[in-house]
Design a protein around this nucleic acid. Structure first.
Length: 339
RNA sequence: GGCUGAGUGGCAGAGUGGUUAUGCAGCGGCCUGCAAAGCCGUGUACAUCGGUUCGAUUCCGUUCUUAGCCU
């Protein structure tokens, strides 16, 4: 019988982190971050990363595991996550996945087909070719190599055209053939999925704006200055394209006036949150909680503790789980948690 | 008070006697090794009232608003 997992999902600025910290105090959990930006060391303010002090007291897996010059990926995330699940389950504890990266959650649940991984040299070649021919031409090439993929991929979508061509260039087999041959192994663990988000979009927008201004006051620009100064970092890297970092980077490069920095950063964050919500709406069998409700933490904990998926595991950990949790419920009723 | 100009969708900004401007924002969606990425879709809006006309956002006049100039 497989042991359980918990997913805590939500858009940026919804208060996931505080809730996760609380839950990890109350339940025999280990925190695993599901966030494509928190993986980067030295990117702290703009990613709203928990402080060093918090991370010491509440260890998070998959935070600060890459240099900003490196790339991470959904496939690496899946591999890392599965290794962690084994380890955590072996210790009799529950993996608590927290984050807002929709692709990572989906990859985990649906599995990824067996595909050749990214190859920087091949990508560089394809990029150079595209610069000469244009992406429409590249799409036409793809149509010859892999008609099925070409039909699915829009001619204006360079990222996906490049990946499909890359797969073929590396392996000699096209993407659609790979999909046919490999059956992605789906998620097996009994899982409770919690989604938190403000019920009102305006609330989310206002929290995003407030938080972005706070980041600027906390020295966000100085943080990016250090990264901007590095010769090995540029805007083509996923790290420097992260929301907020890209805008500050452009400002430092003199391509975005200071007067527009906050506005553009906030807009980018809003658009991120919107895309995240699109992923979240597609989640099946998830329990939604309004992040603005006064007793959010208590309600989520109550929901988890009473969920049959957890009962067996909690019964094995009576002293540090359900007993404590139920006691703490009484003290948490009026508290409101924010990220 | 007089003269001249301008009034276009949330914002910016073209244009036309009868066909969709466009960009940004917003909203919805897509998503298989860059995903906080990349991409797709989505608004007859033309200040007011009246006139001319088969037909006016576009022409004429009224009113209002506004910018500049004059007294």
């Amino acid at each position: 019988m497989l042991q359980p997992c918990i997913f805590l999902m939500g858009p940026t600025a919804s208060g996931k982190t505080d809730l996760a910290l609380f839950l990890s105090e109350q339940l025999p959990c280990e925190l695993i971050s599901v966030d494509s930006a928190l993986v980067y060391r030295g990117m702290d303010i703009g990613t709203a990363k928990p402080s060093a002090d918090i991370l010491t007291r509440f260890p998070h897996h998959l935070v600060d595991i890459r240099d900003p010059s490196e790339a991470y990926s959904a496939a690496q995330f899946c591999s890392d996550a599965h290794a962690l699940i084994q380890k955590i389950h072996a210790a009799g504890r529950i993996p608590l996945f927290v984050g807002g990266t929709g692709l990572y959650f989906r990859s985990l649940q649906q599995g990824l087909s067996d595909l050749p991984s990214a190859n920087p040299e091949v990508r560089a070649e394809l990029a150079a070719e595209a610069a000469a021919l244009g992406w429409e031409q590249m799409h036409q090439k793809l149509a010859k190599i892999d008609p099925i993929a070409a039909q699915r991929i829009h001619p204006n979508d360079p990222q996906r055209i490049q990946r499909a061509l890359e797969v073929h260039a590396i392996s000699g087999m096209n993407m659609s053939e790979w999909f046919e041959q490999s059956q992605a192994s789906a998620w097996q663990y009994p899982t409770i999925k919690i989604i938190i988000s403000p019920a009102e979009r305006e609330v989310l927008h206002s929290r995003i704006a407030t938080r972005f201004h706070a980041m600027l006051e906390q020295g966000f620009i100085e943080e990016v200055q250090g990264l901007y100064a590095r010769a090995d970092l540029n805007l083509s890297l996923p790290s420097m394209r992260a929301v907020g970092y890209r805008q500050v980077y452009l400002y430092l490069a003199g391509e975005l006036p200071f007067s527009q920095l906050a506005e553009q950063g906030i807009i980018a964050t809003r658009q991120l949150a919107k895309r995240q919500l699109t992923w979240l709406r597609a989640e099946k069998e998830a329990e939604w909680f309004d992040s603005q409700q006064a007793d959010l933490a208590a309600n989520v904990l109550k929901y988890l503790v009473h969920n049959p998926i957890l009962s067996a595991t909690l019964a094995l950990n009576p002293t540090e789980s359900s007993h404590t949790a139920n006691n703490n419920l009484k003290n948490r009723n009026t508290e409101n948690h924010h990220e």
